[in-house]
Amino acid sequence: MTSSASSPPPGQAAARRAPAADMESLVGTILMVGVITSMTLILLGVIWHFAVNGNLTLDYTITGVNFFGFIVQIVQGLFSGAYRPRLLVRLGVVVLLLTPYLRVFASVGYFAFVEHNLKYSLFTLFVFSVLTYSLFLR
């Protein structure tokens, strides 16, 4: 009884705390799923390559495409007869890079539409725009 006297009305406190809590599970889940998916893809690719060739040398460099062009290349590769282990590794790297990117994207949406926090919607939108711009660099 004594503690409830000093705290704000329960409804108001819950309304203020609940969105932030959900934001944390959203961000945490995106990061966890992203990292596990990408590590699994890379591991499968490396094991597959090792089983076929008996070495860990998958050497090649990405040149002349930006990040989004790289994704297009992979999707094209999936439908053609490209070397599968290499494709899995590429896909794993793409998922890894997409993980923090999606996290920022989700934060923009959360601040804008759930928390209705204009200030932080703009902050995260700025981060998202800069990242998008830099991923288009080539």
Binding site: G45, D59, Y60, I62, R86, V93
Partner: peptide, 12 residues
């Protein structure tokens, strides 16, 4: 990536 230094095969 834009500078052509990312090598997924080496990074993996």
């Amino acid at each position: 990536l834009a500078g052509g230094l990312i090598n997924p095969g080496l990074a993996a």
